[in-house]
Structures are given as C-alpha cells and as structure tokens.
Design a binder for these strands. Sequence first.
DNA 1: CCTAATGGAAAGTAAATACTTACATTCAGG
DNA 2: CCTGAATGTAAGTATTTACTTTCCATTAGG
Lengths: 194, 194
Amino acid sequence: MINMKKGETKKKITKATIELLKEKGYKGTTTREIAEQAGVNELTVFRHFGNKEGIIQAIVKTTSFSLEIFDKSIEWELEKDLTNFGYLLLKDFDNNRDMISIALKDPLIFSQAHEEIIKKINDTKKILKEYFEEMQKKGYIKELDCCTQAEIFLSTYWGYFMYKLNFGDKALHADYQDMIKNSINTFIKGISLH
Amino acid sequence: MINMKKGETKKKITKATIELLKEKGYKGTTTREIAEQAGVNELTVFRHFGNKEGIIQAIVKTTSFSLEIFDKSIEWELEKDLTNFGYLLLKDFDNNRDMISIALKDPLIFSQAHEEIIKKINDTKKILKEYFEEMQKKGYIKELDCCTQAEIFLSTYWGYFMYKLNFGDKALHADYQDMIKNSINTFIKGISLH
DNA sequence: CCTAATGGAAAGTAAATACTTACATTCAGG
DNA sequence: CCTGAATGTAAGTATTTACTTTCCATTAGG
C-alpha cells in the first residue's frame, strides 16, 4: 500500500468518503472513519485534501451533472420517444445517485450540488414540456396542460428512483424495465388521440 | 417564560428539535441549538429528556404512522376512487412529512421510523393492488400487472411529494390539486376499458 | 545506489459538545 | 406568606474530533 500510482490514494479516499456520506451524512462522518474505510492513514487524508471540507470540494468538483441528450434522438413517435426518454432519465438519475443522496442529506453543506439538481430538474422538465407542445401541434396528443403533464411524468420516475435509493428493494419490486414499459404504456394511452 | 403550563416546555423542545433535525440531521444538531431555538436553557433540555437521544425517542413515540382509511370509501368508480385515494395519499405523506424528512436523513438513527415507512408503503401498495385486481374482475379495467401498476401510481405521488419536500416550489409548480386531477385523468384513460 | 516522493506511527493540541453539579430565582396554589 | 415545582445561571468535566508535528519506512526512477 505504499508508493501507489498517482491519484490512486486520492481516489480511494474520495470513494470511501462518498460511501460514508451516503450512510451518515457530513457531520456523522469522521476523518478517522474515512481513513479506515480507505485503508489509509488519517494523516494521509489531510496531506491530500488539507481538511475535511477539502474532500467534499474535490468530490463536488469531479461530479458532472451532465444531461443526457434527448433532443437529438427524437423521432416524433410517442412510444419510442417516451420510452427512450424514460431510459435516459433513469440512467441519468442513476449516474448521479451518489451526489443526489448526499446532497439531499446535507443540503446546507452541499448547497451548490443541491442547486444544480434543481436546475437539472427544470432543464429536463422544459425539454419534456416542449416535446409535448410540439406533439400537440402535430396533432398526436390531446389538448392538455403540457407543463403539468411533464411534471407528472418526471414525478413518476423521480418517485421510483427515490424509492429505490432510500429503501433498496424493500419497497418496490418492479425492475426498471417493467416500470418503464408499464408506465409508458399507461401514459401513452392516457394522452394520445386515437 | 417561567412556570409555564405542564408539557408546554417539552413540546417547545421537541418542536425545535424537529425543525433542526430536518435542516441539519441528528449529528449536525447540537443540544445548545435546540435550547436556543426552543427559547429555553440547555439544562432544561436535559432535565426533561435525560439526554439527546431521549428527545428523539420522545419524538418517535408521539409520531403516528396511521394509514388513512381508503377501503371504506370505495365506490368502485375508477375516477372517484383514484381521486380519493390520491388525496388521502398526499394528505398522509404530508401528515408525516417531518418524520419522513428526518428518517430519510438519518436512517441509522431513526431506523425504527425508517422501517415503519417501508411497511406503510407496502401496506398502501397492497390496498391499491387489490383494488385494481377487483376492478379487473369486475371488468372495469384492462388486463395488466396490478402490482406494477400500483407501484407506478405510488411512485408518481411519492415523486411529487419528494420534489416538494426537498426543493419546495423550486422544482415543480403544479399545486397538489392540479397534480391529482391531471395524473388521475391520464392514468384512468390508460388503464380503463371503453 | 541515491534521492525525492509518498505514506505510516505515535503523540499531541485546541475546540466543540454532551452532560453534570451546585445554587439562585420565579411564581402558582394553599 | 410559604412552599414546592419548574426554570435559570454559571462553572466545570470528559470525550470526541479535526488537525498538527515530528520522525521514520518504502520504493520508483534517474
């Protein structure tokens, strides 16, 4: 465990920190625990990051809240598009699951990440809303409140994700494929014209 | 602030504690802050509850996770029933919003409450699933996976609630009435036979 | 083989924090 | 007016925890 490759120690520490933050939050996680979990001396933690706050700043910095590209794969077919969107959405939530879990536990300490999550939600909502509006213009779906409809769609996926995030498999049993298939199926029939 | 009515001080302390727990979590909340927020001497806190853990035990004890009664108001009309169910669900989430927020922040410390939430979700899911099954037998709705459908319904409401809980009005703009009306509307058309 | 970079061991410091003790104060009710 | 229950003031203790300091060990690479 000595003289390891550059950056490896740092990565071990941030990884250990993330796991502990998810479990116990910022105040509940001690630097000693972090060092233990990382298999590293506590001093090494301070050598790399200066102080406890330095670790979280490093974590936040390397976290990208990238939005998966939905716009470019639109085919203007309700089922295909929404299924695709559902997949991208869940994948996206899942890519950011650590940061989401941490930021929701400590919104004051991770205020920046907290804000970014909100921004991301709104961006996603806008995309979906505009998609619905366009589909309405094209005459593929009913007259309805596109904004609210977008929020309902997002809520369903956010709810599913949050259930899984907080309760694992103890609350919901449907896997994400079942969930997407069934929800899209119901949703489409609810909003499309025939 | 001296010689106040019986139980009033205790209530002030638990109330202050709840507010702080929602913001900062268990470890992030100090007994001094609790006393300050309650407008009470720190010693008074210990006199009433023995120790910090005593406060949270008192809080958990007085928290009831009562399930609103849905069964008894069933009319076997999809729109009426689901609308009613949606209202009860959101009301129920809202009644327990403090405990939900706290338990999700500190699942280890509030493990009992955490378990109760999971149990409650499963109870609610079962009720909804059985309702769908019965409606299927009666020939009012399509052949579909009732369990998954129940989970989707719950996810939508849980997601809406979690958005509001964590982000206030910064994420979603639909009020709960719009949300219920629109989601039920879409949902019904998705699952009912015509 | 030497050196610089990296990490470890052990001991310690200063602040925060949960909790205690001893004593004074207020005020409602008899 | 007196008593007792409830609260306040002040000072202190023991533990935890973030962070430091000093010295030592290992090894990759020139």
